[in-house]
Design a protein around this nucleic acid. Structure first.
Length: 497
RNA sequence: GGGCGCGUAGCUCAGUCGGUAGAGCAACUGGCUUUUAACCAGUAGGUCCUAGGUUCGAUCCCUAGCGCGCUCACCA
């Protein structure tokens, strides 16, 4: 045990065992969902079909209000909260044992559904089961967990002790489910590609590195699934998607977590115009499905996710907000100096830094910014008649990038050349070697295709109104907690959280 | 990594212009059959994040460290 276990609760466990009651029984109880029962119970004025019937619920006992010969206590399950009523004259054997119960315990309760004098739905209990004793005291009942560190470290408490937390994760699940149904309805299949990559690719980011013992080779945790998904397109699967956990060994922020979920999809015979359409219709459809509306409030601002989204050209936005063309070297360098943007040693990167500094704050959204410089889009196809422009777009909302898409480059010679330029660049985030196998895949022929990536976590932030990515991740990245071993060897004592 | 801030009971928070600390909730004892942040009376619970320094004396001041938050940088 740790020092979190409360002596009074441990003493109750001993008392129970002395009476032959197992505080951690092997079997649960067959229980109905509380929300369903409340709906079927109706009101005192208009009783539903379950009023007066017997029901069993199972969940966490949150607190107790003891009136001597009557105890009221709310019980929480995954679907909702229902008050149980323990009466001396109904409860039988369990009446004297009720003192063994504490807030936080997991219980099963069977009884008759009804209401109190004040109309509160109540299960009048005839049979009680302790399903698991909670020896750690729960957080304060009114505030729940407030300390943000404690909330993230002990999400298993936060989920039931803090208002509204579990609802975010229920909605996240529905969002992901809605994405799958939307794409499957359009003929997409879900695929799984490697997480361990021998060569970096598909994005520019610092990787997590690991060593593959059986192959005696260093591998990288993927920074993007893109190059494998496009191999699937070469293979003729034609419409594929993956909900991929990506890993980038970079800083944390309200919008960044080192491991994050990305939806990537690729469609043969499509191009970036089709990707614009599928992005906005998918986002609109998901919003309607999980929220019942296309209106969302994010960071205090209202947005409407109805398709079509506003369109804006990268080049025009650049000129409008930076005051010069993106490839006007003297102009861009002057603007960079004015904004104190350091020179990354690469003009196209500097130019994009200027874009991000000048333009992104103006992107209220949802807005599709299209036609990017080809130098910063090494996997995108050139625009017909404009070889310096790539058929690429990004989706922005509230100054945050939600998605990135392009017409996929399928010319193996052009792809080889662009990989070679990346490898030759001084950029520490560029891949260290050319992915020859990927070039060879293109040499077999990849049909014209469009591809799209959407940050799932950020989409969930928008649709649930959460300001920080950590509130849409069950277990956000935190420094590991240190524990001190106790003298007995069995005892583990948490140092201060 | 830089700057700013925070760390006190299981939880939520006061407080000490430097004299080793309080409240509410939770727990425990007693009372109460309609509460819903129930109520009333009582009890117990603390490495004031850690380590140094200054001081007669440090939870408080100083320095360093650890953890967390905000922010900047980084994140095509």
């Amino acid at each position: 045990m740790t020092e979190l276990a409360h002596p009074d609760r441990l003493a109750k466990i001993e008392a129970m065992r002395a009476e032959g009651l197992d505080p951690y029984p092997a079997r649960g109880v067959a229980a109905e969902a509380i929300a369903d029962l409340i709906a079927a119970l109706g009101t005192p004025e208009a009783p539903g079909p379950r009023a007066g019937t017997t029901a069993t619920i199972a969940g966490r006992l949150l607190s107790q209000r003891d009136f001597g010969k009557l105890v009221f206590a709310p019980v929480l399950d995954r679907s909702g909260r229902l008050q149980i009523g323990l009466e001396r004259d109904r409860l039988g054997d369990w009446w004297p044992k009720r003192k063994w119960l504490d807030g936080g315990d997991l219980v099963g309760a069977t009884g008759v559904l009804g209401h109190t004098k004040k109309g509160e739905p109540t299960l009048w209990v005839t049979e009680l089961t302790l399903l698991a004793k909670s020896v750690a005291p729960p957080p304060e009942k009114w505030h729940g967990l407030v300390d943000v560190e404690a909330r993230y470290r002990r999400r298993y408490v936060d989920l039931w002790a803090s208002e509204g937390v579990s609802a975010v994760f229920l909605k996240r699940s529905r969002i992901v489910s809605a994405i799958r149904r939307f794409l499957e309805a359009q003929g997409y299949i879900e695929v799984e590609t490697p997480t361990l990559h021998p060569i970096l690719g598909g994005a520019a980011a610092r990787p997590f590195t690991t060593h593959y013992n059986a192959l005696d080779h260093d591998f990288f945790l993927r920074i993007a699934p893109e190059l494998y998904l496009k191999r699937c397109i070469v293979g003729g699967l034609e419409r594929v998607f993956e909900i991929a956990r990506n890993f980038r060994n970079e800083g944390l922020s309200p919008r960044h977590n080192p491991e994050f979920s990305m939806l990537e999809l690729y469609e043969a015979q499509a191009d970036y115009r089709r990707m614009m359409e599928i992005s906005e219709t998918m986002i609109e459809s998901i919003a309607r499905e999980v929220n019942g509306t296309t209106s969302v409030r994010f960071r205090g601002v209202d947005y409407d996710l109805r398709a079509p989204f506003e369109r804006a050209s990268y080049l025009e936005l650049f000129e409008k907000h930076a005051g010069c063309a993106y490839d006007d070297q003297p102009g861009v360098r002057a603007k960079a100096r004015e904004l104190s943007i350091p020179d990354p040693g690469n003009f196209s990167k500097l130019s994009n830094d200027v874009f991000e500094a000048c333009v992104e704050d103006h992107l209220h959204g949802p807005v599709i910014v299209y036609d990017y410089p080809v130098e910063i889009s090494p996997l995108a196809k050139r625009k017909p008649g404009a070889p310096k422009i790539a058929e690429r777009f990004e989706i922005f909302l509230g100054g945050m990038e939600l998605g990135n898409a392009f017409s996929e480059l399928n010319d193996p010679a052009d792809q080889y050349q662009r990989f070679a330029e990346q490898v030759a660049s001084k950029d520490p985030e560029a891949p260290g070697e050319i992915d020859i196998d990927y070039v060879q895949a293109l040499e077999y022929g990849m049909p014209p295709a469009g591809g799209l990536g959407i940050g799932i976590d950020r989409l969930v932030m928008v649709l649930t109104g959460q300001d920080t990515i950590r509130d849409v991740l069950l277990f956000p990245a935190l420094r590991p907690r240190s524990f001190e071993s106790g003298e007995s060897g069995e005892v583990v004592t948490p140092k201060k959280t």
